[in-house]
Design a protein around this nucleic acid. Structure first.
Length: 287
DNA sequence: AAGAGGCCCTGATAGC
DNA sequence: TGCTATCAGGGCCTCT
């Protein structure tokens, strides 16, 4: 489900709700996420005070005292729901996959605070938890991953050098977290449309200007998506709540057959599937 | 060693 | 209605 913007939205509400609080009780109903939740997970998490909730790429990072950390990855279908006893029936967050009503099926984990409950729901179970026991290990954990688009490291020299002699298409690189972290299948298509670049163009054939466009549009589009509360697709229930609205701004994603939204272009948006993932692009203005 | 493709899993929708 | 096939915001693993 969530790419960087959606995870950032979850992070913001989680941080607001659970910082300076301690987890009083942990309930694991299904240990079989993408990776098995170890037997000592509950005792590790319990009674630790949360300092802050941060994020790298699509990973949520719960910071405990004493430089201990708990990572959450939401996979394709993971959502986090906050149940606040003081505000019953109000959900701070954010269901990108389901309706904002509290789901009952697939609530694999519950983290219970005083007057507050955080529920991890994930139908497909591609998400996972990870425990990190010190600060060095946290750095190590993300060492092999590329910079986020917002990072100063994501600049022209880096991109050009990375693409030298690379025979893979540019769309695959945007999805490759070793190159850049946080972009997923929706935003990859949107970034390449904004940059007027064909997704199947080989990376080594990109010009300097095209690289610059990719860099600036990556920042721009992810920023816009965060400002719109992320993208909520496949969620057509008309309920109030903090649903994202960036799906209304999609210019190519899920727009197959539509006329290109670029005013000067009359091309048709095509969808192409490679290795089980769809790519959307305008046949006319993305060269 | 880079690159292509398969696979993990459940649910919603489309098509017959 | 009830079946089957296809597709879905990710990332890891294995082949060549």
């Amino acid at each position: 489900m969530p790419e960087l913007p959606e995870v950032e939205i979850v992070r913001q509400s989680l941080h607001k709700k659970i910082k300076k609080k301690s987890i009083k009780k942990v309930i694991i109903r299904n240990r079989n996420l993408r990776f098995k939740i170890p037997g000592d997970f509950e005792s590790f998490i319990k009674n630790k005070k949360i300092i802050e909730v941060s994020r790298f790429s699509k990973y949520l990072i719960i910071h405990f005292q004493n430089e201990e950390y708990f990572l959450i990855h939401l996979g394709m279908s993971g959502t986090i729901h906050i149940l606040d006893k003081k505000k019953p029936l109000k959900f701070t967050n954010t269901s990108f996959y389901h309706s904002p009503f509290l789901p009952e099926k697939h609530n694999h984990a519950e983290f219970i605070f005083d007057n507050l409950k955080v529920i991890y729901n994930d139908p497909r179970r591609f998400g996972f938890f990870e425990i990190i026991k010190n600060h060095q290990d946290l750095n190590k954990r993300f060492k092999s991953m590329g910079p986020e688009p917002f990072s100063d490291k994501f600049k022209l020299n880096y991109v050009i050098n990375y693409f030298k002699n690379k025979n893979k298409d540019i769309k695959s690189f945007l999805l490759d977290q070793r190159f850049v972290s946080g972009i997923g299948n929706i935003y990859a298509s949107e970034i390449l449309f904004a940059s007027k670049i064909n997704p199947f163009k080989k990376a080594k054939r990109l010009t300097k200007n095209e690289c610059l466009n990719i860099i600036s549009n990556s920042k721009k589009i992810l920023e816009q998506a965060i400002n719109k509360g992320g993208s909520s697709i496949r969620d057509f229930t008309n309920v109030s709540g903090n649903k994202g609205t960036f799906q209304k701004e999609f210019r190519v994603y899920q727009q197959e057959g539509a006329v290109c939204k670029r005013l000067t272009c009359k091309g048709i948006i095509k969808k192409k599937i490679t290795s089980n993932r769809s790519t959307f692009f305008c046949v006319s203005c993305q060269k």
